[in-house]
């Protein structure tokens, strides 16, 4: 079945079974490998992408549900000013270690700051609670969110 959606600003059409996971469409059909698979069951958030500006887990999203929507992956997001602010904050605070959770974490951070430009530490922790990291113990990532918040992501 042909499914159309907007990906990082461009229209794309894929011809796949509607149950195919958005994650597999991105990685296998569209060769966008910045979105990672950590668990395949919606637990870890490594596969986070934005759909109509909201973060979702692409590993459990059937492509049928993405039809006619707007998807932003790290490949598209990295071209934005907001990315620069967030990425610099992650670098400053040591928010990325092995890097496998990082693209998802950065998109989740964007979603937090868009909805709540000045979160408290607790609010940042709540907002990132669906993105697991095994390297940092989260403090550095939370610090990065707060740092990016200070600078403002300038939407």
């Amino acid at each position: 079945m042909k499914i159309n959606f907007k990906l990082n600003g461009s229209n794309v059409t894929v011809d796949v079974v509607p149950s195919k996971r958005l994650l597999d469409v991105l990685r296998e059909d569209l060769h966008l490998t910045g979105t990672k698979e950590g668990c395949g069951e919606g637990e870890c958030g490594a596969c986070t992408v934005l759909v109509d500006n909201r973060p979702i887990n692409s590993c459990i999203a059937p492509i049928a549900n993405i039809a006619n929507k707007e998807v932003i992956t790290i490949e598209g997001f990295r071209e934005t000013k907001a990315y620069r602010v967030i990425a610099d904050a992650f670098a400053d605070m040591g928010g990325s270690q092995c890097g496998f959770c990082t693209p998802g974490m950065i998109l989740a951070t964007y979603a937090v700051l868009r909805d709540n430009p000045h979160p408290t530490e607790e609010e940042a922790r709540i907002a990132l609670s669906g993105n697991l990291c095994r390297c940092t113990g989260y403090q550095a990532i939370v610090n990065a969110v707060l740092k990016a918040s200070e600078k403002g992501i300038k939407l």
Partner: peptide, 12 residues
């Protein structure tokens, strides 16, 4: 390796 890992360019 910061920039590659944050931008999704790092190849695992």
């Amino acid at each position: 390796d910061n920039e590659d890992k944050m931008s999704g360019l790092a190849i695992f």
